[in-house]
Amino acid sequence: MPAKSASKKVTTKKEIKKKETKIKTKYDIYVYNDWCKKCGICEAFCPVKCLGHDEIGQVIVLDADACIGCAQCEIRCPDFAIEIKVRE
C-alpha cells in the first residue's frame, strides 16, 4: 500500500511574483505634543504596539514601520492629537 502523501500547497510562479511585487504600505505617525494630554489611549489600543511613552508620559513612536494604518488611535484620541499618514 503506498504511503499517503501529505497534501502540499503548490506555489505557482505567478503567485511568487505577486508576493514580491506587493509592497507593504508604510505609514508615518505624527503626534501633536501641544494638544496631547498624555492619557495613554493610543498606546493601549494600538493592535501592533508601535507606540510607547517616555518617563513623563509623552507618546513616542517605537516602530513606525510596524504601523498597519488602522488608525484606531486616531478615532479614539480625545484630543485630536495623533495623525497617521501614508509614507510617500
Partner: peptide
C-alpha cells in the same frame, strides 16, 4: 486648545464621532 476636558475623557471621542 487643547480643550477643557480631563486627559483621557471620552467626550472628545464622541465629538470626533
Amino acid at each position: 486648545f487643547p480643550h477643557v476636558w480631563c486627559p483621557g475623557c471620552g467626550n472628545g471621542i464622541v465629538l470626533g464621532a
